[in-house]
Amino acid sequence: MADSPLRTIRLHHLRHSVASLLKKAGVAPRDAMEILGHSRIAVTMEICTHSDEATQREGLGRLGGTLFGTPEK
């Protein structure tokens, strides 16, 4: 497989991707914890789930709407 153009990834990296996709899909953290098989929610939230710019912007848009009565974008 040395000639394969695909990058080798570990199964563990896929779990991080799944955790982030579940977060982006709006799955409750407790449910994501169960899906991923973690024993503690802290593992799911602090180690496996990664933030992204789109989610941060959405959160700031919601905050702006709450504070200033502006519609979300």
Results as ranks from 00 to 15, higher is better:
residue 57 R to P: 10
residue 54 A to P: 15
residue 45 M to I: 01
residue 12 H to Y: 12
residue 18 V to L: 14
residue 30 R to Q: 04
residue 13 H to S: 15
residue 35 I to N: 15
residue 63 L to W: 01
residue 68 F to H: 05
residue 52 D to G: 04
residue 28 A to C: 07
residue 39 S to H: 11
residue 67 L to R: 05
residue 8 T to C: 03
residue 24 K to I: 12
residue 2 A to Q: 08
residue 57 R to C: 15
residue 43 V to G: 08
residue 72 E to L: 08
residue 67 L to N: 01
residue 21 L to C: 03
residue 58 E to Q: 09
residue 50 H to M: 06
residue 38 H to R: 02
residue 40 R to F: 12
residue 61 G to D: 15
residue 60 L to W: 03
residue 56 Q to G: 11
residue 49 T to K: 06
residue 13 H to D: 14
residue 66 T to L: 09
residue 65 G to L: 00
residue 18 V to A: 13
residue 44 T to V: 02
residue 60 L to S: 03
residue 15 R to A: 15
residue 11 L to T: 10
residue 54 A to G: 12
residue 23 K to S: 03
residue 71 P to H: 00
residue 14 L to Y: 05
residue 20 S to L: 04
residue 28 A to D: 11
residue 31 D to G: 10
residue 50 H to E: 07
residue 35 I to C: 15
residue 65 G to Q: 05
residue 28 A to M: 06
residue 43 V to H: 07
residue 39 S to M: 11
residue 4 S to Q: 07
residue 61 G to W: 15
residue 64 G to C: 11
residue 9 I to G: 11
residue 68 F to I: 00
residue 66 T to E: 03
residue 27 V to Q: 08
residue 31 D to S: 12
residue 9 I to D: 05
residue 43 V to A: 13
residue 55 T to W: 12
residue 68 F to P: 03
residue 38 H to K: 01
residue 24 K to F: 09
residue 20 S to A: 02
residue 69 G to F: 03
residue 28 A to F: 01
residue 56 Q to D: 14
residue 39 S to W: 03
residue 61 G to R: 11
residue 67 L to V: 02
residue 60 L to G: 08
residue 12 H to I: 06
residue 33 M to P: 03
residue 36 L to H: 11
residue 20 S to F: 03
residue 19 A to I: 01
residue 69 G to E: 09
residue 8 T to D: 14
residue 54 A to H: 13
residue 33 M to S: 12
residue 3 D to F: 11
residue 10 R to I: 01
residue 9 I to S: 06
residue 35 I to E: 15
residue 36 L to D: 08
residue 71 P to Y: 06
residue 21 L to T: 06
residue 31 D to T: 10
residue 32 A to P: 04
residue 41 I to S: 02
residue 52 D to F: 04
residue 58 E to S: 07
residue 13 H to I: 04
residue 3 D to E: 13
residue 56 Q to E: 14
residue 26 G to W: 02
residue 54 A to L: 15
residue 24 K to N: 13
residue 70 T to R: 08
residue 20 S to N: 07
residue 14 L to G: 05
residue 58 E to N: 05
residue 20 S to Y: 04
residue 49 T to C: 06
residue 53 E to V: 15
residue 9 I to H: 08
residue 72 E to W: 02
residue 64 G to F: 10
residue 69 G to V: 06
residue 47 I to M: 05
residue 48 C to N: 08
residue 25 A to N: 04
residue 48 C to Y: 10
residue 52 D to V: 04
residue 29 P to F: 01
residue 3 D to V: 09
residue 69 G to W: 02
residue 47 I to Q: 11
